[in-house]
Amino acid sequence: MNEKLLLQIARKLKEVRKINGLTVQAVAERADVSKGLISKIENGRTIPSLPVLLSIIGGLETNAEDFFHGFGNGEPHQDVRVIKKSEYDPFEKEEAEGFFYHHITTTEIDKLTLECVMLTLKPGAKREKVVTDAYEYKYILSGNVTYLIGEDEYELEAGDSLYFNGRIPHVPENRGTEDTVMLIVYLFDHSPS
Protein backbone atom coordinates (compact mmCIF):
# COMPACT_ATOMS: atom_id res chain seq x y z
CA MET A 1 0.00 0.00 0.00
CA ASN A 2 1.20 3.48 -0.87
CA GLU A 3 2.83 5.24 2.13
CA LYS A 4 1.12 8.54 1.30
CA LEU A 5 -2.25 6.77 1.44
CA LEU A 6 -1.33 5.25 4.81
CA LEU A 7 -0.52 8.70 6.17
CA GLN A 8 -3.83 10.04 4.82
CA ILE A 9 -5.72 7.20 6.54
CA ALA A 10 -3.85 7.79 9.81
CA ARG A 11 -4.54 11.54 9.81
CA LYS A 12 -8.17 11.16 8.73
CA LEU A 13 -8.87 8.55 11.39
CA LYS A 14 -7.54 10.83 14.12
CA GLU A 15 -9.28 13.89 12.66
CA VAL A 16 -12.71 12.23 12.41
CA ARG A 17 -12.32 10.67 15.87
CA LYS A 18 -11.60 14.07 17.42
CA ILE A 19 -14.34 15.87 15.46
CA ASN A 20 -16.83 13.27 16.71
CA GLY A 21 -15.53 13.61 20.29
CA LEU A 22 -14.51 9.96 20.51
CA THR A 23 -11.63 8.51 22.48
CA VAL A 24 -9.30 5.86 21.10
CA GLN A 25 -10.88 3.44 23.58
CA ALA A 26 -14.42 4.24 22.38
CA VAL A 27 -13.53 3.65 18.72
CA ALA A 28 -11.69 0.43 19.62
CA GLU A 29 -14.71 -0.90 21.51
CA ARG A 30 -17.11 0.01 18.68
CA ALA A 31 -14.87 -1.60 16.07
CA ASP A 32 -14.09 -4.62 18.28
CA VAL A 33 -10.33 -4.10 18.05
CA SER A 34 -7.69 -3.18 20.61
CA LYS A 35 -6.93 0.37 21.71
CA GLY A 36 -3.29 -0.29 20.79
CA LEU A 37 -4.23 -1.14 17.21
CA ILE A 38 -6.16 2.13 16.79
CA SER A 39 -3.18 4.03 18.17
CA LYS A 40 -0.74 2.26 15.83
CA ILE A 41 -2.94 2.98 12.81
CA GLU A 42 -3.37 6.66 13.79
CA ASN A 43 0.39 6.96 14.05
CA GLY A 44 1.05 5.33 10.69
CA ARG A 45 2.84 2.42 12.33
CA THR A 46 0.68 -0.43 11.05
CA ILE A 47 -1.53 -1.26 8.08
CA PRO A 48 -5.07 -2.44 8.88
CA SER A 49 -6.76 -5.06 6.72
CA LEU A 50 -9.71 -3.78 4.70
CA PRO A 51 -12.34 -5.46 6.94
CA VAL A 52 -10.68 -4.00 10.06
CA LEU A 53 -10.44 -0.54 8.46
CA LEU A 54 -14.12 -0.64 7.50
CA SER A 55 -15.04 -1.72 11.03
CA ILE A 56 -13.02 1.20 12.44
CA ILE A 57 -14.66 3.63 10.02
CA GLY A 58 -18.05 2.41 11.29
CA GLY A 59 -16.83 2.89 14.86
CA LEU A 60 -16.02 6.51 13.98
CA GLU A 61 -19.73 7.17 13.30
CA THR A 62 -19.08 7.84 9.61
CA ASN A 63 -19.22 5.87 6.36
CA ALA A 64 -16.51 4.85 3.92
CA GLU A 65 -17.59 7.33 1.24
CA ASP A 66 -17.29 10.29 3.61
CA PHE A 67 -14.10 8.94 5.20
CA PHE A 68 -12.26 8.57 1.87
CA HIS A 69 -13.57 11.80 0.31
CA GLY A 70 -10.64 13.86 -0.99
CA PHE A 71 -8.07 11.04 -0.82
CA GLY A 72 -5.55 10.63 -3.59
CA ASN A 73 -2.26 11.98 -4.72
CA GLY A 74 -3.74 15.43 -5.24
CA GLU A 75 -0.83 16.82 -7.21
CA PRO A 76 0.71 16.15 -10.59
CA HIS A 77 4.40 15.29 -10.63
CA GLN A 78 6.53 18.37 -10.17
CA ASP A 79 10.27 18.73 -10.56
CA VAL A 80 10.32 21.72 -8.20
CA ARG A 81 7.96 22.31 -5.31
CA VAL A 82 8.18 25.16 -2.82
CA ILE A 83 6.56 24.55 0.56
CA LYS A 84 6.00 27.63 2.68
CA LYS A 85 6.27 27.39 6.46
CA SER A 86 2.60 28.35 6.67
CA GLU A 87 1.76 25.13 4.77
CA TYR A 88 3.38 22.84 7.37
CA ASP A 89 0.60 20.67 8.77
CA PRO A 90 0.65 20.17 12.56
CA PHE A 91 -0.27 16.66 13.70
CA GLU A 92 0.01 14.35 16.68
CA LYS A 93 1.62 10.96 16.56
CA GLU A 94 1.71 8.40 19.32
CA GLU A 95 0.45 9.12 22.81
CA ALA A 96 3.19 11.38 24.07
CA GLU A 97 3.79 14.50 26.11
CA GLY A 98 5.83 17.36 24.68
CA PHE A 99 6.15 16.04 21.09
CA PHE A 100 4.93 18.62 18.52
CA TYR A 101 5.10 17.53 14.87
CA HIS A 102 4.63 19.48 11.62
CA HIS A 103 4.34 17.55 8.37
CA ILE A 104 6.32 19.26 5.62
CA THR A 105 5.96 16.96 2.61
CA THR A 106 5.66 13.39 1.38
CA THR A 107 7.10 12.44 -1.99
CA GLU A 108 7.04 9.20 -3.99
CA ILE A 109 10.22 8.32 -5.89
CA ASP A 110 10.03 4.99 -7.73
CA LYS A 111 9.59 2.39 -4.96
CA LEU A 112 10.51 4.83 -2.19
CA THR A 113 8.47 7.24 -0.12
CA LEU A 114 10.25 10.20 1.44
CA GLU A 115 8.46 11.98 4.29
CA CYS A 116 9.83 15.16 5.89
CA VAL A 117 8.66 16.25 9.33
CA MET A 118 9.68 18.96 11.80
CA LEU A 119 9.62 17.91 15.48
CA THR A 120 9.75 20.27 18.43
CA LEU A 121 10.64 18.35 21.56
CA LYS A 122 9.81 20.13 24.82
CA PRO A 123 12.04 19.71 27.91
CA GLY A 124 10.99 16.56 29.76
CA ALA A 125 8.96 15.25 26.80
CA LYS A 126 7.87 11.64 27.32
CA ARG A 127 6.75 8.64 25.32
CA GLU A 128 7.57 4.95 25.03
CA LYS A 129 10.06 3.63 22.49
CA VAL A 130 8.49 3.08 19.06
CA VAL A 131 9.40 1.37 15.78
CA THR A 132 8.72 2.48 12.21
CA ASP A 133 8.97 0.69 8.86
CA ALA A 134 11.40 3.32 7.62
CA TYR A 135 15.00 4.40 7.73
CA GLU A 136 15.17 7.64 9.71
CA TYR A 137 17.45 10.64 9.35
CA LYS A 138 17.44 13.33 12.07
CA TYR A 139 19.11 16.73 11.81
CA ILE A 140 19.18 18.75 15.02
CA LEU A 141 18.34 22.38 14.20
CA SER A 142 18.46 23.70 17.77
CA GLY A 143 18.84 22.42 21.31
CA ASN A 144 20.15 19.09 22.56
CA VAL A 145 18.65 15.61 22.48
CA THR A 146 19.49 12.18 23.82
CA TYR A 147 18.42 9.48 21.36
CA LEU A 148 17.79 6.04 22.81
CA ILE A 149 18.08 3.42 20.06
CA GLY A 150 17.91 -0.19 21.18
CA GLU A 151 20.08 -0.31 24.30
CA ASP A 152 22.35 2.58 23.24
CA GLU A 153 22.20 6.34 23.92
CA TYR A 154 23.42 9.05 21.54
CA GLU A 155 23.94 12.67 22.66
CA LEU A 156 23.27 15.19 19.90
CA GLU A 157 23.34 18.99 19.71
CA ALA A 158 22.48 21.61 17.09
CA GLY A 159 24.20 20.75 13.80
CA ASP A 160 24.53 17.03 14.56
CA SER A 161 22.67 14.39 12.60
CA LEU A 162 21.72 10.76 13.05
CA TYR A 163 20.67 7.99 10.65
CA PHE A 164 19.28 4.60 11.73
CA ASN A 165 16.89 1.77 10.91
CA GLY A 166 13.55 2.75 12.48
CA ARG A 167 12.73 -0.93 13.06
CA ILE A 168 15.00 -0.70 16.12
CA PRO A 169 12.96 0.56 19.12
CA HIS A 170 13.83 4.21 19.66
CA VAL A 171 12.82 7.43 21.40
CA PRO A 172 14.32 10.93 21.66
CA GLU A 173 14.57 12.57 25.08
CA ASN A 174 15.05 16.27 25.80
CA ARG A 175 16.86 16.33 29.14
CA GLY A 176 17.68 20.03 28.83
CA THR A 177 15.78 23.21 29.69
CA GLU A 178 15.13 24.52 26.15
CA ASP A 179 13.12 23.18 23.21
CA THR A 180 14.89 20.90 20.77
CA VAL A 181 13.88 21.27 17.12
CA MET A 182 14.82 18.65 14.57
CA LEU A 183 14.18 17.90 10.93
CA ILE A 184 13.21 14.26 10.43
CA VAL A 185 13.33 12.45 7.11
CA TYR A 186 11.66 9.03 6.88
CA LEU A 187 12.63 6.81 3.95
CA PHE A 188 10.16 3.99 3.28
CA ASP A 189 11.40 1.34 0.82
CA HIS A 190 8.57 -0.53 -0.95
CA SER A 191 10.89 -2.78 -2.98
CA PRO A 192 10.25 -6.51 -2.63
CA SER A 193 12.59 -8.02 -0.05
Rank of each mutant, 00 (worst) to 15 (best):
G143R: 04
L141P: 00
L7Y: 05
E97N: 09
Q8I: 06
S34C: 04
K111F: 02
E97M: 04
R127D: 01
Y88N: 09
K85A: 13
Y163A: 12
T146S: 11
G176L: 02
R175H: 14
K84S: 13
F100P: 00
E151W: 01
L7S: 15
Y137K: 02
L6F: 04
T177Q: 11
K126P: 01
K111M: 08
K12I: 00
D79N: 13
R17A: 04
L50I: 15
T146D: 13
E153Y: 10
L37C: 07
K40I: 01
E95R: 13
E108S: 13
E97I: 06
I168S: 07
G58M: 01
K35V: 06
R11G: 10
K85E: 14
L183I: 02
E15W: 03
A134C: 11
E136W: 01
I47V: 13
S34P: 06
N2K: 15
P48D: 07
H77G: 11
Y88D: 07
H69N: 12
T105D: 06
N63A: 03
K14D: 08
L187Y: 03
L54I: 08
R127W: 00
H102T: 09
L7H: 14
L187N: 12
V82F: 07
L54F: 11
S49W: 01
K111C: 04
S55F: 00
Y186G: 07
V130A: 05
I104S: 04
N2Q: 14
V52P: 00
G36H: 08
F91M: 11
P48T: 07
K129V: 03
T105I: 12
Y101E: 06
E153T: 15
A31L: 05
V131H: 00
I47G: 06
P76G: 14
V27D: 11
K84E: 07
Y137R: 03
L114T: 05
R17C: 04
G176S: 14
L114W: 03
I83Y: 02
E65S: 14
Y137P: 00
E92A: 14
S39P: 08
L6I: 12
D66E: 15
D179C: 05
L54M: 14
P192S: 10
E128G: 08
V27Q: 11
I56V: 14
K93C: 08
G143C: 02
K35P: 03
G176V: 03
G58F: 00
L112W: 06
V16S: 10
S34Y: 04
T62W: 04
S191I: 02
T46H: 02
L37S: 09
V171Q: 10
E173H: 13
G72A: 06
D89R: 13
T132W: 00
D133L: 09
N43S: 15
I19M: 13
F164Y: 12
G58K: 10
L60S: 10
K126C: 03
Q78W: 01
H77E: 15
L5S: 12
Y101C: 08
A125M: 02
Y137T: 10
A28V: 04
R167E: 15
D79L: 05
L156R: 14
A158C: 10
E108R: 12
A134Q: 06
G72D: 05
H170Y: 10
L37N: 08
I83Q: 06
E128W: 00
K122T: 09
F71I: 04
L13P: 06
L162R: 09
V80C: 07
A158M: 10
A134Y: 01
S55H: 02
A28Q: 09
E173Y: 11
K126Q: 13
